[in-house]
Amino acid sequence: MKISTKKINVNVITGFLGVGKTSLIKTLLQHKPDNETWAVLVNEFGQVGIDASLMSAKDKAAGELLIKQVPGGCLCCAAGLPTQVAISQLIQQAKPDRILIEPTGLGHPKQIIQTLCNEYFSPVLQLDSVITLIDATKVADEKYALNDTFIQQARVADVVIASKSETYGDNDLSSLSDWLSVIGAFPQHTIAGTLPLQTEALTQLQNLICHPSTFTSRIAAKPIQTQRTSFVAPQAPGLFTDNNLVEPTLLADIDWQGEMMQYFTHQQQEYVSHGWVFAPEVSFGFDRFMTWVKSQQHANVVRLKGAVITYDGILGVNWVDSDLCLSELDETFDSRVEIIVNESNPCAQPFDKAQVEQALLGCIGGH
C-alpha cells in the first residue's frame, strides 16, 4: 500500500443492536464537508447485508461516498483478516478523507480498534474518537447491564451518545453515568439526544469526531494476520437454497440459476440471524409484506430489517424495541430480509423458521 503523507481519519461507531448506529452514520454523511470524500465500512451480524442499502444513494451516485459491507459478524473476530482486506479496498478505491466503521451490534469493538492501530495501518490511518451509542433505559436491565459485549462497547468509547433520549425518565441519564463508572468506562464526552441528532448535539459531535482517540494509548496494537482463510462452496441449489457456508462478500454475485430465493443463517451465543435474499426480478405486495412484518414482532425477535422491492417502490424496514421505522429507498439490487432471534428467552414461543419463511413467500407477487 502506498503511504500518504496525510493520514486518513477513522471513526469507529459502535453500540448494541438497534441503538441507532446506521441512523447516526446517515446523519453524519448528510452533513459531511462538501470537499471531503468519505467511506463507510458496515459489519452486520447476519449474512445477507442490508444496512448499506439504507445509506445515501445520492452521495454514492455523486462519487462522494463508498460503502463496503462485511456481513456475518466477522469484522470484530480475533483474526481480523476480513477487516484488513475491506479497509485496504476502501483506501484503494475511494482514497477517502475519512472512514466510518460500524461493527456489528453483537461484537466486541476492541479487536477492530487493535487492527486499526497495528503496524500495517498505523502509518496510514489516524484513529479519531470512538463513538458508542447507548440507550440509557437499558442499564437498569441486567440482561444488558451485565452483558459482556454491552460493557465492552461502553469501555472503548471516547464519546457516548445517549440515544433515544425522548424515551428517558428523570433518572435514566444519571443511571447511565453511574453504570459507566461501575464498569470502568470513562468517556470524555456524553451527548444526549434523539436520532437524527438535532442542531446543537450534531454540531458538538461534528467537532468531537475530529479529536484523536485516547483509547489507543490503553491497548496493544493487534499483530498483522498473515494466515490464509477458505470457505466451503455450497451444494448445488434447488429452487430455494439454504446457504450457511457461502462467503459473505460474494452475496452480490449470486448466480441464481432459476432460483427465486436463498436463505442464510448465522449464530453467535444465544443470537441467531435468519436471512433471505430474493432474485432481482422478485417483487412483493406492500400491504401483504407489512402484514407479515407486524406478525413477526414476537418476544424472542430482537431485530427485523429489510430492503424490499415492492410494486409501490423500494421499502426500507427496521423494527427493534417495538419501534417500527419505514423508509423509501432510492435503489437496491435485490430484496433482502433478516430477523435476529434471541433463543435464550424462556418465555417466548420458539421461532419456527419454516412457518415464517412460508408466510414471507406468500407476500410475493400481486399488489
Rank of each mutant, 00 (worst) to 15 (best):
K2G: 00
I3C: 09
V12E: 06
V12K: 06
I13N: 01
T14H: 04
G20C: 00
T22E: 08
S23F: 08
S23N: 07
P33R: 06
N35E: 15
W38D: 02
V42K: 09
V48L: 04
D51P: 02
S53T: 04
M55E: 00
M55P: 04
K58N: 12
K58P: 08
D59P: 08
K60T: 04
A61K: 14
P71N: 11
L75V: 05
C77T: 09
C77H: 10
P96S: 05
R98E: 13
P103E: 03
G105Y: 07
Q111A: 05
V124H: 09
Q126N: 09
Q126W: 15
E142D: 13
Y144C: 08
A145P: 04
L146A: 11
L146C: 10
L146R: 09
V156C: 03
V159T: 04
V159N: 02
V160W: 14
V160K: 12
T167S: 13
T167Y: 15
G169S: 00
L176T: 03
L180K: 01
H189N: 14
T190N: 07
A192C: 11
G193R: 08
T194N: 08
T194Q: 09
P196I: 01
Q198R: 07
Q198Y: 07
Q204F: 10
Q204E: 13
L205T: 07
L208F: 14
H211K: 03
P212H: 13
T214Q: 13
F215D: 13
T216I: 12
S217V: 12
I219R: 01
I219H: 03
I224R: 10
T226K: 15
Q227G: 13
N244T: 11
E247V: 11
Q257I: 11
Q262W: 14
Y263E: 13
Y263H: 11
F264H: 12
T265L: 02
H266C: 07
S273I: 03
S273R: 00
E281Q: 09
E281I: 00
V282F: 14
F284K: 02
F286I: 09
F286Q: 08
W292D: 06
W292L: 05
L304P: 11
K305E: 01
V308D: 01
D312H: 12
I314Y: 03
V317Q: 14
W319A: 05
L324G: 06
C325G: 01
E328K: 15
L329F: 06
E331Q: 14
S335A: 01
E338Q: 04
I339H: 05
E343T: 11
P346D: 01
C347K: 08
Q358W: 09
C363T: 04
G366P: 11
H367T: 15
